[in-house]
C-alpha cells in the first residue's frame, strides 16, 4: 500500500512538471472520436447499425430521440411485473384520499395516511430497484447498449419520477381539500419518503442482503411502522416542529446522495451483479 502511494506521488509530481496543451488535447480527442466513428462505420461485420446515427440525424435532439426510441423498445419487451406493481401501488395511494374524503376523514387522519403512504411508496420503489441486482438478467443486460450504471440510473429516475408525481398529487389534493398548509404537509410527506428510501437503499449497499427481497421489505416495514407511530402523535408534526422536519429532510437528502454515489461506485466495479466470485 505504502509503495503504491509513493509511486502515485512520483507520477503526480512528474505530471505537474509536464505542461499539457489543452488545445492539442481537444484536437486529439476529436480526431480519435472521428476515427472511431469512421472505423466502425466501415466495419462490414459490425451489427452496430442500431448504435450509429444515420447521416441525416445529428445534434443533441436527434441523439436524444434515438435514445428514447431504444428505451421504448426495451420497455415494450421487458418484464413489467415489478413496475406494474409499483404503478398500481401509486395509483391506489392516489385514489385512496378521494375515498377518505367521502368517508369524512379529518386532517390528522390524512396526515397519518400521507406519512404511511409516502413511506410505503419509498420502500416499494427500492424493492423494484433491487430486482436489478437479483441476478435474473442483471449480468447479461449490462453487456448490451446501456451500461449497468445507465440502467440503474434510468430505473431510479423512472421510479423517482412516478413516486414524486404521486406524492405531488397527494400533497396538492389533500392540501386543497382539507385546507392544510402545503409546506407543512409537503415536508411531513417527503421526510418519511426520503428516510425510508435511505434506509432501504442502505440495505442495498450490503452484498449479502441486496440479492434477496426480504431485507429491503423488512426495512420498509420497520420504517413504515415508525412513521405510523410518529403520525399518531400530532404534536410531533405541529407547526413549531417543522424546522426539525426540514433539518431531517436536508440530512436525509444528503445521505441519499452519498448512498447513490456509493451504489454507482459499486455498480461500476461490477461486483454488485457478480457475487459468485470464480
Amino acid at each position: 500500500m505504502k509503495t503504491e502511494k509513493k509511486v502515485k506521488m512520483i507520477f503526480q509530481k512528474a505530471n505537474e512538471k509536464m505542461h499539457i496543451s489543452e488545445a492539442e488535447k481537444s484536437r486529439t480527442q476529436e480526431l480519435l472520436a472521428g476515427q472511431m466513428e469512421d472505423y466502425f462505420a466501415a466495419s462490414e461485420i459490425s451489427g452496430n447499425s442500431g448504435f450509429r446515427r444515420s447521416k441525416s440525424e445529428s445534434g443533441f435532439a436527434a441523439y436524444f430521440r434515438q435514445k428514447i426510441r431504444i428505451l421504448c423498445r426495451q420497455i415494450r419487451y421487458m418484464d413489467k411485473r415489478a413496475w406494474t406493481g409499483d404503478l398500481m401501488g401509486n395509483i391506489c395511494f392516489a385514489v385512496i384520499p378521494v375515498a377518505l374524503r367521502y368517508y369524512g376523514a379529518g386532517t390528522e387522519d390524512m396526515m397519518v395516511f400521507l406519512m404511511l403512504s409516502s413511506s410505503l411508496l419509498g420502500s416499494l420503489s427500492i424493492l423494484v430497484l433491487s430486482h436489478l441486482f437479483s441476478g435474473e438478467m442483471g449480468e447479461l443486460s449490462c453487456t448490451c447498449y446501456f451500461s449497468a450504471r445507465q440502467i440503474a440510473a434510468q430505473q431510479m429516475f423512472g421510479l423517482g419520477a412516478v413516486n414524486l408525481l404521486t406524492l405531488g398529487f397527494l400533497i396538492g389534493f389533500i392540501g386543497g381539500c382539507w385546507k392544510a398548509e402545503f409546506f407543512r404537509i409537503g415536508i411531513c410527506t417527503l421526510v418519511p419518503f426520503i428516510v425510508t428510501v435511505c434506509i432501504c437503499m442502505g440495505i442495498l449497499q450490503f452484498e449479502g442482503l441486496r440479492n434477496r427481497s426480504y431485507p429491503v421489505t423488512a426495512a420498509g416495514v420497520i420504517s413504515c411502522a415508525a412513521f405510523l407511530v410518529i403520525a399518531s402523535v400530532p404534536p410531533l408534526y405541529c407547526a413549531s416542529a417543522i424546522i426539525v422536519w426540514g433539518a431531517v429532510f436536508a440530512v436525509g437528502l444528503a445521505v441519499l446522495v452519498l448512498e447513490i454515489r456509493h451504489l454507482f461506485h459499486t455498480i461500476d466495479k461490477g461486483e454488485i451483479l457478480c457475487t459468485d466470485w470464480n
Partner: peptide, 24 residues
C-alpha cells in the same frame, strides 16, 4: 449462470435481448 425470465417465450426473450442491444 444464464439469467432469463421464466415467463418469457423464446421469441419474446430474443426480441427483448435485441432491444437491449439496440438492434433495428
Amino acid at each position: 449462470e444464464f439469467g432469463y425470465y421464466k415467463e418469457f417465450t423464446a421469441l419474446r426473450f430474443l426480441r427483448y435481448m435485441a432491444a437491449l442491444k439496440a438492434m433495428p
